[in-house]
Write a protein that binds this DNA or RNA. Structure first.
Ligand SMILES: [Zn+2]
Ligand SMILES: [Zn+2]
Length: 732
DNA sequence: AGCACGCCGACT
DNA sequence: GTCGGCGTGCTC
């Protein structure tokens, strides 16, 4: 038999291997299993994706033999394989690398993998128990095990320690086996649901509409924070579980907290597993394996959980659909939301996307009736909407980025015993360090970028390559010793707030302040216990975390987002503003959001604040259409980088000339001139790109195929690294 | 991406 | 002589 393997190598094809008779196992489906093979002259692991009786490879060189089949059963089922093959072709990424990224780390190693054994203790029926008749603890333990076989974990919960178990085992009264040898599927006939809430009219309507659907359907639940989206998810999952089906819940990285998971644990008695960054390789593999074995019923995970093997998948939930963490930024670049919709289509099941601020792509899909939108307008309890205020910075006394007006409002809220949240999109003390005499800006020696001054660390840090430099005493150009920090960062705002409000308790939250695990949770607990009353941080605070005592949110600088050259910047700003409003003011307390800007009349602000996100999104969509931007057109980007600037330029121009020579064979193509990246030199590598745009996805896809088929022929290819990205984040 | 092969310069 | 520099080419 001949097998096609996907192998982790940057090549766009599968490789054929021969399976000898003695490796064939009767009744085992090989498709989706891993195989150990020689590839070139190294041994590696490949995934079997196709099989045939006859040899199909006709090129030169002999077909090699498979050395070992590494799995007893496929790690990927036919749906996984269909999704991954689709993703490889849609994103034009090497199929082996696509499969590799979808695998838990433990399965990437070229060796067999199994769940770590769990000891199961069973009573020996004809045992003579007289020898322990006087030992009370042993007798109690034996009675429990006599009832039903037990794991050490279960026995520990019942107060029986390992020493007693070992004693019983040594006496031959109980036997040991591995619980994992048998599959213990979750019990669909014994589902208990705890504390389900009564749905309000809108929630009930959403539930009814989704429940009534059959096969593939994409729904968008559009509801503000506190409108009860999660309750709908939970009840839809309950219905799915009762049908014996499993559920997949995707959440943004930052939202996958113990509290989120607890809501699911508290509701259901079925086994629930997670896949997220703080789990180790073994734990992730365990979650993956338990879903595959149908031992767990619900998987809650970040974007990569999308590729898990879930044999009885019945529903997909994707919370905060618009969130940027669904986009994978390096290696195989994919969008988990788009892939999840494809997965739901492949499996013919419903997918529910929840958000208060649907992405512009999603709004377009709603308008095109690809997705069904369900609106939740009611907030739970008597919570009222936050009040927005624009602070016109042009007529203000500004001190360290904080206007007089904002500081007065902060003072007022602090006086009432409320908390204040300030967002700055820059960490460190100052964005730059400038010579006060000649204006020299301290730059990174590896990148075309200025260094950020970090006061706590007492270093100049490059935010592009993380290199740290000792702070010089004088300007290298003129020798002047007075160096001025410019551009407020979180550290500087923190320092200024301490001076402005000497009696306040401010806390700073950014990547630098929470570098150790667990620190964030400690700070968040302290905030909820009112240990702090001013929270200063980067935009990581705007997502996921709830601050019930915060009544004022100030966004220090929104102008950089208003005047960014990235076409997605306005969308992101609008989402940030709305999300932030959801974080402030709960119950009786009125929440306020202050936006500091030099352009208070900007149409984005007036539309958003006067007419709401929905109208903003419609306006944004109209503008995208006028400007021929996604989702009305499609982008692909060819990125090139290398250590020698001239070689990268030769490569990118050769690629560009090739594209121009071929573009007439395609319609609707626009190829933009090669451009240097915003930061051209990053870690001593020079970055250039060509953007390709097309109204038709198909034309673009075929054109990209043609580029890939010729990419090795472009000048200097051997010393230039290149990637093609589909639906890139912006225009770089 | 890895990894080997191969062809030139410089070093014991 | 031969050690190693990295340009080139291949992976079923
Ligand atoms: Zn100077
Ligand atoms: Zn740098």
């Amino acid at each position: 038999m001949y097998l096609q393997l996907a192998i982790n190598t940057p090549l766009y094809r599968t490789f054929e291997y021969k399976l000898s008779f003695d490796l064939k196992i009767e009744g085992v489906n090989l498709i989706g299993c891993r195989a150990l093979v020689k590839f070139g002259n190294r041994k590696t692991v490949g995934i079997i994706v196709e099989q045939s009786e006859k040899q199909t490879y006709t090129g030169k060189g002999a077909v090699k033999e498979i050395e070992e089949i590494l799995d007893d059963s496929p790690i990927f089922d036919k749906y996984n394989i269909q999704l991954l093959k689709w993703a490889a072709s849609y994103y034009h990424y090497p199929i082996g690398e696509v499969f590799y990224t979808a695998m838990p780390l433990l399965l990437r190693k070229p060796e067999k993998a199994g769940l770590k054994p769990i000891d199961l203790w069973t009573f020996v029926s004809d045992a003579d128990t007289s020898c322990i008749s006087r030992a009370k603890a042993c007798k109690a333990a034996l009675n429990i095990i006599r009832e039903a076989p037990c794991t050490s974990h279960k026995l520990k919960e019942l107060g029986i320690n390992q020493a007693i178990i070992t004693k019983l085992f040594n006496l031959g009264l109980i036997t040991k086996s591995n619980l994992r040898d048998q599959v213990h599927e979750w019990d669909k006939n014994n589902i208990s649901i705890t504390d389900a809430k009564i749905l309000n009219d809108e929630q009930q309507h959403a539930y009814d509409v989704i429940s009534a659907s059959h096969g593939f359907n994409a729904f968008v639940i559009n509801g503000v924070t506190g409108s009860g989206k999660t309750e709908i998810y939970l009840q839809l999952i309950a219905k799915t579980l009762k049908q014996g089906k499993q559920a997949l819940v995707l959440v943004p990285e930052i939202n996958l907290t113990p509290q989120t998971v607890k809501r699911f644990y508290d509701r259901f008695n079925v086994p629930i597993v997670c896949i997220h960054s703080s789990l180790n390789d073994n734990e992730r593999f365990e979650s993956f394996a338990m879903m595959k074995r149908n031992e767990a019923a619900i998987l809650i995970g970040t974007r990569s959980a999308l590729f898990a093997n879930i044999p009885n998948l019945g529903i997909i939930i994707i919370d905060e659909e618009h969130d940027s963490s669904y986009r994978q930024g390096d290696g195989f670049r994919y969008h988990a939301r788009d892939c999840a919709v494809m997965l739901a289509f492949i499996r013919q099941i419903p997918i529910i996307m929840g958000t208060a601020t649907p992405s512009i792509e999603t709004v377009n899909n709603i308008q095109k009736k690809k997705y069904t939108e369900i609106i939740l307008s009611k907030r739970a309890g008597n919570a009222s909407d936050a009040i927005f205020n624009i602070i016109d910075m042009r007529r203000q006394i500004i001190n360290h980025g904080i206007s007089k007006e904002l500081s007065l409002h902060i003072n007022e809220e602090l006086g009432k015993g409320n908390q204040v949240l300030l967002l700055i999109n820059r960490r460190g003390y100052s964005q730059k360090l400038i010579c006060h005499n000649c204006g020299y800006v301290f730059m990174c020696k590896n990148c075309d970028s200025n260094l950020t001054y970090h006061m706590t660390e007492n270093r100049l840090v490059c935010h592009h390559c993380e290199t740290k430099f000792i702070i010089p005493h004088q300007c290298p150009e003129c020798g002047f010793t007075e160096l001025t920090p410019t551009g407020n960062g979180t550290e500087q705002i923190f320092e200024h707030i301490q001076q402005l409000f000497p009696n306040s308790n401010p806390v700073r939250i950014d990547r630098d302040a929470i570098n150790r695990k667990g620190v964030l949770n400690t700070i968040l607990d302290d905030i909820n216990n009112n240990k702090y009353n001013i929270i200063i941080g980067t935009q990581m605070l705007a997502k996921g975390h709830h601050f019930p005592n915060v009544t004022l949110v100030g966004i220090i600088d929104i102008d950089s987002c208003l005047f960014s050259n990235n076409y997605r910047a306005h969308e992101q700003l609008a989402q940030l503003i709305v999300q932030v409003a959801g974080r402030s003011g709960r119950g009786e307390k009125q929440g306020y959001v202050y936006l500091q800007t030099h352009t208070p009349d900007h149409p984005v602000l007036s539309t958003l604040l006067n007419y709401g996100y929905h109208t903003f999104a419609e306006e944004c969509l109209k503008k995208r259409k006028q400007m021929m931007l996604p989702p009305f057109t499609n982008y692909a980007i060819l990125k090139a980088d290398g250590t020698e600037r001239e070689k990268v330029i030769s490569f990118i121009y050769d690629a560009y000339n090739f594209m121009n020579s071929q573009s007439s064979k395609f319609s609707n193509l626009v190829i933009m001139k090669p451009t240097s990246a915003y930061i051209t030199r990053k870690q001593n590598r020079y970055h250039f790109y060509v953007l390709i745009n097309s109204r038709a996805k198909r034309d673009l896809s075929e054109f990209v195929d043609l580029i890939i088929a010729n990419i090795d022929r472009f000048q200097c290819k051997s010393s230039v690294h290149s990637v093609i990205e589909i639906d890139p984040l912006g225009n770089e």
